[in-house]
Amino acid sequence: MASEGGKIDPMHQFMIEPIAPLNLAGYDISFTNSSLFMILVMATIWVFMLGGMKREMVPGRWQAAVEGVNGFINDMVSTSVGPEGKKYVPLVFSLFMFILVANFMGMMPFGIVPGVHAFTVTSHLTVTAVLAILSFGTVLVVGLWKHKLHFFSLFVPHGTPWWLMWLIPFIELFSFLIRPFSLALRLFVAMTAGHVLMKVLAGFVINGLNADAAWVAPVVSLPSFILMIGITMLELLVCAIQAYVFALLTSLYINDAVNLH
């Protein structure tokens, strides 16, 4: 992407560049390429969901696809949480769809248009952290609201022997508190690493073709290109898996909050 002096920087794709500078109460809330892609993601989800609003008795392909996603999330939440999970479906659905579409949006070949760069919203720690905090915060609020102080019995699993009481609650508390970090870092690292790998391989292809020595192109560029195809497939899979993992873990954590252990 950014080839300055023939060098391709695999990190440049993560740069946030302001499009329209904005300032609110001393905070810089500029409209950036990141914001643009967030809005693009939202618009895509919205257009997709509108296809499910035809509300026909016999669904067309599009409506069937929307209802398929809806059924997928419904099943996931009801399997994890049970019948009480119905009211958390919008949250899990929003998280899943936002992450899935943002991941895929970052994989779109917008780069074929000169000057346009794809941006992966979910490769940013700031974004994944907010999503993880939303997920974790929901668990905390729901758990404390529903069970009051009894919620803390979550840290004492059933059947803990009395002589381990000094240890198990601390391990449980730690595993509970680590959740938002693992949620945020898993998504951030998976998306960043995948995109860096793709960009490095793509750099091999381009630099190999541009090399002065004629033997470099078939020896370096061709294998890199073939590997690139495989890595791209893998990345598409990772995009879907990461969205699924995030949504599944969120519903499992909500299950802890709703049903305790």
């Binding site: 809330i29 409209f31 950036t32 990141s34 919008p90 907010v130």
Partner: peptide, 17 residues
Amino acid sequence: TYASQFFWLLIVFGLIY
């Protein structure tokens, strides 16, 4: 960028939700 990221993400995710 954190302020801009948080601001726009909360708006966008709020709308989605």
